[in-house]
């Protein structure tokens, strides 16, 4: 008699304990969008990740996970084949048909704010933290982010004319309004001279000379594809700008330049350091 009750009790306890562990264990998470993945890692949710998308490049560990392709072109069956219990997607993910199909399969899919603004970033961190049960971690992360951002921006604004350029396939493109690069320039206290154009457009030597940017931000892969910084300075399009004349060419890591992420303070401080160091140099440059 005692034996039976003992077994029953032990069995029940094990079962209940097992259930608790099982729940944490069986959270299978898929992250869609580079700006989402990075926050999941920051919140310590990466232990549950079973898949990401093509745009999830940072942190590097995210690139080792199964990849479902471009997040605006989701394959419903491919996502389902990873057997997720929770999918956290950028609000830009799609197509709507795939999102519908995934929800119809009984998979919990939540979309989170993903715009190039600090407010959207705040919302995103809170939304993701709530979804993966890490709400208590969010305030500290956001506080640290706000502090470092304020520090990076400093007390004064350089208020210079700037443009961000990229070179992907033989043609130099400039970042216009609405792009992440545009938002980053503004946050760094710079004026984007291309803000009236939509998205990335090809640049011409004449237009760039007329716009006369004081600062040019260029991505590191663009510099690489042009064969070094001296080629960038000598390029017909950028040659006749105050930025090149005063050596205010800032090379920015591609991952920093692309995303509006928690590493924004780092991005801003790289840009500001680039300007400050050339500030020191500029009287020298003028004597030449």
């Amino acid at each position: 008699m005692f034996g039976f009750w003992h077994k029953f009790l032990v069995g029940t306890v094990t079962m209940v304990a097992g259930l608790g562990v099982a729940q944490a264990d069986t959270l299978r998470l898929i992250s869609l969008g580079g700006n989402v993945t990075e926050i999941i890692y920051a919140l310590g949710g990466d232990q549950w990740l079973v898949g990401t998308d093509q745009s999830s490049l940072y942190p590097l560990a995210a690139q080792d996970l199964p990849n479902v392709g471009y997040y605006r072109r989701l394959p419903a069956e491919g996502v389902a084949s990873l057997r997720p219990t929770l999918v956290i997607a950028s609000e830009n993910a799609g197509p709507p048909r795939s999102i519908e199909q995934l929800r119809a399969l009984g998979i919990t899919l939540i979309t989170v704010s993903d715009q190039p603004t600090v407010a959207s970033l705040h919302r995103r961190v809170n939304e993701i933290a709530r979804a993966i049960g890490r709400s208590s971690e969010a305030p500290a992360i956001l506080e640290k982010f706000d502090q470092s951002l304020a520090q990076a921006r400093g007390h004064f604004s350089p208020n210079m004319r700037a443009m961000t350029v990229v070179m992907r396939s033989g043609q130099m493109l400039g970042a216009g309004g609405g792009s992440t690069a545009d938002a980053i320039l503004k946050l760094a206290g710079l004026t984007n001279v291309l803000s009236s154009q939509a998205g990335y457009q090809p640049l011409s030597a004449e237009v760039v000379s007329a716009l006369a940017p004081d600062v040019i931000v260029i991505t590191s892969s663009s510099v690489e594809s042009m064969g070094g910084i001296q080629n960038v300075k000598a390029s017909a399009i950028l040659k006749h700008t105050p930025a090149v004349a005063n050596d205010r060419l800032i090379v920015l890591d591609d991952l920093l330049a692309q995303g509006f992420s928690l590493r924004l303070p780092e991005t801003i401080s790289q840009i500001r350091q680039g300007i400050d160091s050339t500030h020191l140099k500029s009287p020298h440059a003028q004597t030449h």
């Binding site: 898949g51 199964p66 990849n67 479902v68 392709g69 072109r73 394959p75 069956e77 491919g78 996502v79 084949s81 990873l82």
Partner: peptide, 9 residues
């Protein structure tokens, strides 16, 4: 297209 490199398409 579906089975070449899953979960991608």
């Amino acid at each position: 297209a579906r089975v070449a490199m899953p979960p991608m398409e």
